[in-house]
Amino acid sequence: MPLPSPQSSTSAGPAGPAGQELVPWWRDRRVLPWLVQGGVGLSVLVVVAFLLANLIRNLTAAGLLLSWNWLGQPAGFDIAETLLPFQASDPYWRGLLAGLVNTLRVVLTGLVGSTLIGTLLGMASFSGNGLLRGLTRVYVEVVRNIPLLLQLVFWYFVVFLALPNGRAALQLPGVVLAKSGLYLAGFGAAGWIGPQLVNGVWQAPLRFSVEFAALLTGLIAYSSAFIAEVVRGGIAAVAKGQWEAASSLGLSWFQTLRQVVLPQALRVIVPGLNTQYISLAKNSSLAVAVGFTDLYSVAETTLNQTGRAVEVVLLLLGTYLALDLLISLLMNGLNRLVQIRER
């Protein structure tokens, strides 16, 4: 790379009568910014105008000009698992809302689960036990280098769909995992009720479909590896003297982490968690691959039935953007809380 010598650059350009350099107007520092911005702005404007003009022309030709009336028409499809009561004769907007509620359900439970497991994994990577440290490393490296979609279909088709039904199902106190779903104990009509086998079919106050369980497992397994790395980075950022001081006060390994190190690590961890939470929310849209009807899945069906591409895409993008902003807002609030307040 030849550097221009200082001499040549000062003598470049003809000198004006008053010793001023005469710069051509297009290189004048007062004009240049406007020139660049005008050029870029104009080309972006031309491209956008071109696309919009095509859009309007094509939509008019197809008779699909922007309209939201179709949202009130009956959907005609069913949703297998919803918190909102929904049937095929309900309008589209209710179906999309039910899908959104399903998305929120996955995201919320996923956030809680992956934070818990990720934090434990992050803590384990500072264990004195070499085997535990090594295993954590292996887990993180395996999970991060395999695509999430592949992991989700693996959990669903290989693990959850191979589960036995009836008496052979996996049983823990209050929890039953069968091919027909995940059954949890809860409060029913007669107080606390655990899962029961009635005529070869499990019944319980709380039932989740196997699709939901597979999606949740896959998302938690994936996100917790990333969160573990965030937590590990946070803990590593805490000065080593803090560990030594705490243990010289007689605190155990767990007490040291819990009461001394983690509270200080939080201010590094929380911004990193924000990114991971947003990716979890976006990754939940892969539910469609395991047959769970989340927002994206309902939107896809809606588009196939109505042909309303523009409106459906706008709704989808807007909703996910709002979800991301909400998470960011909450995490920024949390971030302000955990920052060290100096005098």
């Binding site: 094509n58 976006k282 892969l286 588009l303 989808l316 993008l317 953007l321």
Partner: peptide, 25 residues
């Protein structure tokens, strides 16, 4: 921020379903 706010699958969906409308036939 627009791209980072959207899940990739919705953008792919947009590409498959809307690009035909955005460009001349």
């Amino acid at each position: 921020e627009f791209i980072r706010g959207a899940p990739l699958i919705t953008l792919l969906f947009l590409g498959q379903n809307m690009l035909g409308f955005l460009l001349p036939g």
